[in-house]
Amino acid sequence: MTDAPAPAARPRRLDVRDLHAWYGESHVVHGATFHVDRGEIVTLLGRNGAGKTTTMRALAGVVRTRKGSAHLDGHDLLATPPHRVARTGLGYVPEERGIFASLSVAENLLLPPVVRPGGVSLAEIHALFPNLKGRDRTQGTRLSGGEQQMLAIARVLRTGADFILLDEPTEGLAPVIVEEIAHALGALKARGLTILLVEQNIRFALAAADRHYVVEQGRVVDEFDNTTLRTDRARIDAYLGV
């Protein structure tokens, strides 16, 4: 594993150091360094275009041109073939949600192979996201935006993934739905899942997460705990330009 402070209360799960990522010739992530410990919810905050999504894609193996290092539970993510990344326990919920139009809700939900035991059962998923109940035969993309987001989250929970990459789950959703998703994140944290969250909504980030990194031009430039984020709004607002 890594050189976490000696008797760490929480073992390190994700350790990213000097991560770089490219789209073709275009260098987008410029040496990001951050970490996530077991059971934590950690956010990446930052303006549009800062490279948060690309960082997640690089970790999930969707973006393939990468340098630096990224380890999940000691597995070298950058050396893992793309179709084996999921087996390290990493579940990817993309920003665009990635619900398949040619698949029904049930087919979408059951699509990702189970990677390890202990996944969230269908009954629990329906308790967590009651909107998905009874919608099995509906075409995936006929669901509302919020329901598609729930489906995208539910889909990776079922596989037994216990490290979730969650990219802007509340983007463009009504406040009621945002609340439902916040509630679900709380339930997942209680189950012991570890989550790396990209978020623009500071209030949501405060309510949901333990720690926060600020990403600017493909680098992690600052870190906040919840107290600082709450009390020092000027500092974070300066980063986000609000």
């Binding site: 179709h83 999921a86 699509l111 990702p112």
Partner: peptide
Amino acid sequence: GALLRAATENPRLVTAFGVNV
């Protein structure tokens, strides 16, 4: 069949889910 349809739509995401596309 669902895997084939999904891989037709978005092979990268299906790969990220752990399928050898």
